[in-house]
């Protein structure tokens, strides 16, 4: 415990300015372990995806792909006939990859855009406007975060059915389009933190709330909105239960549901592991790309938001 005094400065100074520091080394080792635990399973996904499904069981102890083979990826993209797939020990189910990808993109983008936009509007009303019953209504919104999703799944399903929207993109999108409790909560928290000065100046100039919201508040909230949008998009991209209930047709089946064909198809059967893992990689790719493109921005926005 001799380095206490340098501690606060530690986080600001460049590391190369310092001599060897054993605490730093331990810290890096621990961090490396955490990174390994986080990332190594992805190697196993890749290794399995590049294996022949029928050979996996016999080579369970091999760290390299068992019978290296691109068949699993071919299955994901629908380039293999059922007979070929079955011969490799894979799933013979048909899959319309590009259609599902498009559906997933559509589903995730529309719900993200809608939820983020409408939730921001509501959050603004909760954070910045004064009206009777505001806190009560907000508590009610918040309480919905506590409702077990399984509870609302069936009634929502019946509602979408009554609207005649089963197996349509609109029906799929509807429950998420107008708000998610989390998005409202998130944006309200941000708006509470925002400086009022600009708004107040605009208000004195006689600007309306609409104009303030669109021309001042929203542009200033670009960073948290981007963060929220990315989080929402990721959540929607991985959504499974609702699309499974509502999106049965080819036009409304999203990737997570479509790739379910690699799970066991018959009772007591084994999954097509290599197909499933290839599918996992392929379906995670768009999110990975998004993250690679905007990751830095998001991390910055977290910092920006936190230090405010």
């Amino acid at each position: 415990m001799t380095t206490i005094d340098t501690r606060p400065a530690d986080s600001r100074r460049r590391p190369q300015k310092k001599p060897f520091n054993w605490r730093r080394t331990i810290a890096w080792v621990l961090l490396a372990v955490a990174i390994a635990v986080s990332v190594l399973p992805f190697y196993w996904v890749l290794r399995t995806a590049l294996s022949t499904n029928g050979s996996l069981a016999a080579n369970s102890a091999s760290l390299l792909p068992a019978d290296f083979n691109l068949g699993a990826f071919k299955r994901v993209f629908g380039l293999q006939t059922a007979e070929e797939a079955i011969a490799e020990g894979g799933s013979g189910a048909s899959i319309n990859f590009w259609q599902y990808l498009w559906n997933s993109l559509l589903f995730s983008s529309i719900t993200t855009a809608g939820a983020v936009f409408f939730s921001s509007m509501a959050a603004y009303a909760f954070a910045r406007l004064r009206w009777k019953g505001r806190d009560g209504v907000f508590s009610l919104f918040l309480a919905t975060m506590l409702v077990p999703p399984i509870f609302t799944a069936l009634p929502n399903f019946l509602l979408v059915k009554n609207l005649g929207l089963l197996n349509s993109m609109l029906g799929l999108v509807l429950p998420y389009l107008f708000m998610t409790p989390f998005a409202v909560f998130f944006m309200r928290q941000f708006f509470l933190n925002m400086s009022r000065e600009v708004e107040e100046a605009a208000m004195l100039d006689g600007a309306r709330h609409w104009r303030i919201f669109f021309q001042i508040v929203m542009p200033n909230a670009a960073a948290p909105i981007a963060t929220l949008a990315l989080l929402t998009f990721m959540g929607q991209w991985n959504e499974y239960f609702w699309p499974l209930l509502v999106g049965t047709s080819e036009e409304s089946r999203v990737l997570t549901v479509g790739l379910g064909v690699f799970k066991s198809q018959s009772p007591q059967g084994a999954p097509d592991w290599s197909g499933l893992m290839a599918a996992t990689l392929v379906s995670a790719t768009p999110v990975l790309i998004l993250f690679a493109l905007f990751g830095k921005k998001i991390v910055n926005s977290i910092g920006f938001n936190g230090t405010k």
Binding site: M121, L129, T144, T152, P175, Y176, F213
Partner: peptide, 21 residues
């Protein structure tokens, strides 16, 4: 004005959260 701002979210809230609950 608050009602206007909150209307879309309210619609979603009532339809897909409140009523099912």
């Amino acid at each position: 004005i608050a009602l206007l701002f909150i209307a879309p979210a309210m619609l979603g809230f009532v339809l897909f959260y409140l009523v099912p609950t």
